[in-house]
Design a protein around this nucleic acid. Structure first.
Lengths: 200, 200
DNA sequence: ACCTGAACACCGTTCAAGT
DNA sequence: ACCTGAACACCGTTCAAGT
């Protein structure tokens, strides 16, 4: 029976959910698929590319969001966080793939956020940076949240962690998000020529 | 001759600067120090802890900054970025150590930024999140900047990269920073009781 | 107290050779 | 076209035993 890219990504995702990113190795994946390790290299150039494909699978549920620029930013970020949280080490894996430039889905999300920032009135030259800043936040926050989550799901029973850090992560996420959205709002054409202000 | 923690961190930093994070392995480090790999485990519990010590060494130059809260945030962030950029893969290494909770220096920087955010008038319950958001930005931005930097220093000669992404990284860094500072300013006691506003 | 030697249980990647 | 088998060149970590 022929091995297809889809099967490989399926098996990789299952491995990830069951044992985490540390156990998502090429050799283990090959064993799970009952093929030799070398077989994977017919379908993927290297491990990074395979992880990129897993990242894209994880992000499938993050579709396009409509509405005003604020709703589009908030909606995209919330969906992104939800997607990351629904797989073991999802945030870490996507974060690494994004940094390595291996996730098409993250590139797509970045494009959407860039468009939203531009709609908010951010200088087009800086709209992508505004979008990246938002992405850095979502990834950083969620990597952090997930590591705490998984740490005490593993029965670690952390020592009451300065009280606030673990209280309602969704509310905390929302706060940081508002901070960024307000920053973008404050920068709407702050340094664009006056002629561009008509779009508002 | 006895091996000291300092010698190990020195050698590790040299290895990092010369060959990058991928070649900073326990075995290679031991070889460089002319000891057996096991010797390192007398001084450090594991590789993560050693990397944390290297991260702290990299961040030594990021001291305390004075002035108003805006200057303190901007100053700390600029020094942090400079420190990261002055070692090969510095941003990646510190980013990983921060995520793993292994860098005391990053904890200290986070405390400083938290104090600055509190001074800005951010609800004390959310000041640390504001600080974390800033840290996520600096780390995310600099990891990105450094990977591009090192990529074409290695003679890759990237395909003119959408024109803007590579133009004056420091200016771009400053833009994103202002976005965050403005976001913090917009949030000054936005949801604190009126009684707290007297501090302004 | 501090380190060696040797082992344990793995890795990612390549590539001639097979079907 | 797609995969196997086997090798290459490594890893992090542990631990009895030595000094």
């Amino acid at each position: 029976m022929q091995l297809h890219k889809r099967d490989v990504v399926d098996a990789a995702t299952t491995l990830l959910d069951s044992y985490g990113i540390a156990d998502l190795t090429m050799r283990r994946l090959a064993r799970e698929l009952a093929v030799s390790p070398g077989a994977l290299y017919w379908h993927f150039a290297n491990k990074q590319e395979l992880l990129g494909a897993v990242a894209d699978r994880i992000l499938e549920s993050v579709g396009d969001v409509g509405g005003g620029w604020r709703d589009r930013v908030a909606g995209t970020c919330c969906r992104l966080r939800d997607a990351l949280l629904s797989h073991t080490d999802g945030a870490e894996l996507v974060s690494a793939s994004f940094a390595a430039g291996q996730s098409e889905a993250m590139a797509r999300i970045l494009t959407q956020l860039t468009a939203a920032a531009a709609d908010a009135g951010v200088d087009p030259r800086h709209a992508e940076l505004a979008a990246r800043t938002v992405v850095y936040y979502v990834l950083g926050f969620t990597v952090d949240e997930q590591s705490r989550l998984q740490w005490d799901a593993a029965g670690a029973e952390l020592p009451d962690d300065q009280s606030v850090l673990s209280e309602d992560p969704s509310a905390r996420f929302g706060f940081g998000l508002r901070l960024l959205v307000d920053g973008i709002a404050a920068h709407r054409d702050a340094q664009t020529p006056v002629s561009a202000k008509k779009f508002e």
